[in-house]
């Protein structure tokens, strides 16, 4: 009789479904996206959930403190709707940390039309975005743990791989030992980003000026944050004929990093699950392995 365990799944379509022990829990995703850490709490990992909650909340609050009321001004004043501002849906990627973002947005929603952008806003916006991205990673981690249980404990964490891949392009693959792909990713994306910054004469996307471009650029992680901090408040004093191309380059480099983040995460996930079959294969060399 052909059992589920005997089915061979091509590794490139991945996921080693035959090795997954438990049913995925969608509620971990839904709750985790609303409140940080609740996904882990749902899967019986209250300690890990508390750590995620504290880290994400502290990072986000620190960012909002640095940004101040200009966060509301950036998102609130341009899009009035029936007397109320609906700018908050544009706060990407903060919306991945929904409840905290919603609460802070409404706390800052005071009529401060001339709120100046503080000097720490470049770091602040990066930190608020980091809160949303960290929460997405924590939700993915909670969902992964809910599926595999304790099987993946002690192995390289997909969440850490994804976090490193976001912070520094290629670092996630380097952490997993895939040096060639790490070099390719880091080279391609960092060179593209550097060309973009060069074409805009150092005036890389700032959130209060290039809202949509910035949301893509921030996905490149620390290089984008560094460029934002170094170029914060820089005034354009000459005609920049290739500025739009520069914005495109910086944004595309950030968006393409999503592919590397996802790839690092799924590679780590496969690594975390697959080695469980190795001892049996090592004991019996004639047994064909599932992974080519």
């Amino acid at each position: 009789m052909r059992t589920h365990e005997s089915l061979e799944i091509p590794p490139r379509f991945g996921c080693h479904l035959n090795l997954i022990q438990q049913k995925p829990a969608p509620s971990t995703v839904l709750l985790g996206l609303l409140i940080p850490g609740t996904g882990h709490w749902m899967t019986g990992r209250g300690g890990a959930g508390a750590v995620w909650f504290v880290v994400i909340t502290v990072v986000s609050l620190l960012g909002w403190t640095l940004v101040g009321p200009s966060f509301y001004v950036t998102f609130g004043t341009t899009y009035p709707f029936g007397g109320r501002n609906i700018g908050i849906p544009l706060a990407v990627p903060e919306l991945a940390n929904f409840i905290e973002t919603f609460l802070v947005y409404n706390m800052l929603a005071r009529p401060v039309p001339e709120a100046p952008v503080p000097s720490g806003a470049a770091i602040g916006y990066f930190l608020t975005a980091a809160g949303g991205i960290l929460n997405m990673i924590s939700v993915a981690d909670a969902h992964f743990r809910s599926r595999v249980g304790a099987q993946a404990d002690g192995r390289k964490s997909p969440a850490i791989a994804a976090l490193l891949a976001w912070l520094v392009p290629g670092a996630g693959h380097y952490y997993l030992g895939r040096r060639g792909k790490a070099a390719l990713g880091a080279g391609a994306l960092l060179i593209t980003f550097a060309i973009g910054v060069f074409l805009t004469h150092g005036t890389s996307p700032q959130r209060d000026r290039d809202l949509y471009f910035w949301s893509g650029e921030v996905l490149l992680g620390l290089p984008a944050a560094l460029a934002n901090v170094l170029n914060f408040g820089r005034r354009i004093r000459q005609d920049l004929p290739l500025a739009e191309m520069g914005l495109l380059f910086t944004t595309v480099s950030g968006l393409l990093n999503v592919l590397f983040i996802l790839d690092a995460y799924s590679s780590a996930e496969r690594d975390a699950i697959a080695p469980a079959a190795e001892p049996a294969a090592a004991a019996n060399p004639t047994t064909p392995t599932a992974v080519a």
């Binding site: 991945g14 990713g185 391609a188 994306l189 060309i195 595309v252 590397f260």
Partner: peptide, 19 residues
Amino acid sequence: LYLCIVVSLSLSCYREENV
């Protein structure tokens, strides 16, 4: 052309281990 190459490189890297 440069963007074509970078986008294609990223797409090729996605879930492919052999450099």
